[in-house]
Computed example of a mutant assay.
Amino acid sequence: MNLTGGIVLYAVLWFLTMFVLLPIGLVSQEEAGEIVPGTHAGAPHKTNFLKKSIWATVISAVLWAGCAYLILGGVFTREDVMGWDQFIR
């Protein structure tokens, strides 16, 4: 894995983790009892985006380290991955 591949892998893991974390603990404006005029009642009251982005950074860093170990440590090689399509056929 080169530098570009590592950065792309981290970005993909970060966004995947962020999209998983976004709906966790979400409270709608209707549930909070404070509906802003002109918005839908199901719109989020507070998103806690900073807290969730910090968690996404930490979790994706751990996932990236595991993936980097598997790739750079030689647990499986490119030739192994190229043969995985034989399981489908």
Rank of each mutant, 00 (worst) to 15 (best):
G25P: 11
V27G: 00
A32E: 06
D80R: 06
A65C: 11
T39R: 08
V81P: 09
G25M: 00
T77P: 01
L72M: 14
L70F: 15
W14I: 03
M18D: 12
I59Y: 03
L16T: 12
F49C: 10
W84K: 07
T57N: 08
R89F: 13
A68D: 06
G33Y: 06
E31M: 06
Y10L: 14
G38A: 05
Q29A: 01
K46C: 09
T47D: 10
V58F: 09
I35H: 01
T47S: 13
D80N: 13
V36M: 07
G6H: 05
K46P: 07
I59D: 02
V36N: 06
N2V: 05
I24G: 03
D85I: 14
L3I: 12
K52Q: 05
V58C: 05
Y69Q: 08
F19I: 09
P44C: 00
V81T: 13
W55N: 11
T4K: 12
V20L: 10
F19L: 12
T77Y: 00
D80Q: 09
G5V: 02
Q86C: 03
A32W: 06
R78M: 10
N2D: 15
G38I: 02
L63F: 09
A11H: 01
F15T: 14
K52Y: 04
G25R: 05
E34H: 11
V58G: 05
M1F: 12
I35E: 02
I7Q: 02
S28V: 08
F87L: 15
G42P: 07
W14N: 03
M1E: 12
Q86E: 15
I35N: 02
G66M: 01
Q86R: 12
L63P: 10
F87C: 05
R78V: 13
V36T: 14
A32C: 05
L13D: 02
V12Q: 00
L72D: 14
T39M: 07
I88E: 09
L22N: 09
A61P: 05
L21T: 05
L21Y: 00
V36R: 13
C67K: 07
I7D: 01
Q86D: 15
F76W: 14
Q86P: 06
A41W: 13
Y69A: 12
Q86A: 14
P37I: 04
C67W: 08
E34T: 12
V75F: 12
W55G: 08
G73C: 01
Q29N: 03
G66L: 04
A43D: 14
V62G: 00
I24C: 03
G66R: 00
V75W: 12
F49K: 12
G42T: 11
A11Y: 01
E79P: 08
V27H: 02
W64E: 06
I24Q: 00
F19V: 10
G66I: 10
G83P: 06
F76G: 03
Q29W: 00
W55V: 09
I7Y: 07
G66V: 11
W64I: 05
M1A: 13
I88S: 13
G38R: 02
T57P: 07
T47F: 09
G6L: 08
W55D: 04
V12C: 03
L21P: 04
M18W: 13
F87I: 11
G5S: 04
Q29D: 00
L50N: 08
S53F: 12
V36S: 04
G6W: 10
E79N: 13
I88Q: 11
F76I: 02
F15M: 11
G74V: 07
V62S: 01
